[in-house]
């Protein structure tokens, strides 16, 4: 068993988990933060994207033990009380989701991409979403939502 201690959405958490436990399993099964989704077993879909020490990662491809000591932010940690994060609001405004399965990962990737490419143009946004798959929207409204935040100044 591994003892892991990390910060999740600003709170210190500790758990005893099997060594093989993935970060996403720690988040969903142990901490009951089920906003982070699992959409594949090949590390390709991005439904599981969270921020770890300020970088976006696929939480299905990080061990919980590997994340011990890290500062993790999930989709549950970005709103300000009842006020949605501007990226969440933009997805709502632009109909950037249909079933919503990919949305948590999309939003976390989108926040990270604008941090690295402030004011990103459409081509940059599309390239940066390489690791996030959506089966419903055709991406167009997701890109529009991210552009809304990129151009909001």
């Amino acid at each position: 068993m591994a003892s892991v201690s990390l910060t999740v959405n600003g709170e210190a958490v500790s758990a005893e988990v099997e060594d093989r436990t993935l970060l996403v399993q720690l988040l969903r099964d142990h901490l009951r933060l089920t906003g982070t989704h699992v959409g594949c077993d090949t590390s390709q879909c991005g439904a599981c994207v969270v921020h770890m020490d300020g970088r976006s990662v696929k939480s299905c491809t990080v061990l919980a033990a590997q994340a011990s000591g890290a500062d993790v932010t999930t989709i549950e940690g970005i709103a300000d009380g009842d006020t949605l994060h501007p990226m969440q609001q933009a997805f709502m405004d632009n109909h950037g989701l249909q079933c919503g399965f990919c949305t948590p990962g999309m939003v976390m990737s989108a926040i990270d991409l604008l941090k690295r490419h402030p004011g990103a143009d459409e081509a940059t946004i599309r390239r940066e979403l390489e690791g996030n798959l959506c089966r419903c929207t055709g991406y167009h409204n997701i890109v529009k939502a991210i552009r809304q935040v990129a151009t909001a100044g």
Partner: peptide, 9 residues
């Protein structure tokens, strides 16, 4: 290589 999340790890 891959996507931003793969490149971060």
């Amino acid at each position: 290589i891959g996507d931003p999340q793969v490149r971060n790890m």
